[in-house]
């Protein structure tokens, strides 16, 4: 079991403070849902947790250690807009290879069709691209997975399929899942704990 924590983290964009002295911890057995009104800093928090940006004060610790600087990050973020997270000039198979070898059945379980592999991102739909982004994040065997509103652009069926897979994968591999969502129904369905960012 591993623990991801924010220790007295502060972050601001210029004069606008997003977090002041904020502490929060997650462990890899839980599925935590984060919610807050738009503009409260959900995406900023995700970026801090996955090591995309550094807090101005305080630390982000994984099992008591700062996130590694080199090599794949054990906290992987799945972006809200998959089309931005994929290089438009690379075919999907090339983008996937970037993360390293995949487990045999991940593509199949995510419902990725073989013919999508040779396509460019612009030839796929949002849901199809999002599946690739998830597969790519899982290929580095992360300890935590952060899903930043990954299903707002997806239809109900794709949503079910993706969440179904993510939940069972996270249970099998003891990966902590942190999901950001507006949807009350999704929070009720998926999360073992719900955190309101406004209460921090």
């Amino acid at each position: 079991m591993s623990v991801l924590e924010l220790q007295q983290v502060s972050f601001s964009y210029g004069a606008k403070t997003v977090f002041a002295n904020c502490s929060l911890s997650f462990d890899s057995h839980e599925r935590v849902a984060l919610y807050a009104p738009s503009g409260r800093g959900k995406t900023t928090l995700c970026r801090l947790l996955a090591g995309y940006s550094k807090p101005q004060a305080g630390q982000v610790l994984l099992d008591g250690q700062p996130l590694p600087q080199m090599g794949p990050c054990p906290v992987q973020l799945i972006w809200q807009h998959p089309e931005q997270a994929l290089d438009p000039l690379l075919r999907m198979q090339t983008s996937l290879q970037e993360a390293g070898p995949l487990e045999e059945d991940v593509l199949h379980r995510l419902g990725i069709k073989p013919e999508w592999l040779t396509r460019y991102p612009r030839e796929l739909s949002g849901g199809e691209m999002q599946r690739f982004c998830i597969a790519r994040a899982l290929a580095v065997h992360p300890q935590f997975l952060i899903a930043d509103e990954i299903s707002t652009m997806l239809d109900a069926l794709t949503q079910v399929q993706i969440w179904d897979f993510l939940c069972s994968y996270c249970d099998e591999h003891e990966v902590g899942l942190i999901l950001v969502t507006h949807s009350q129904a999704l929070q009720d369905r998926l999360a073992t704990r719900v955190v309101n960012l406004d209460s921090l």
Partner: peptide
Amino acid sequence: SYVAVARSLGRSPLYIALHHVLPA
């Protein structure tokens, strides 16, 4: 974002330069 993702997946700056920046 995709360069940020590549970095997060543990790719070196050289890899990123050759695979993402150069083709672009």
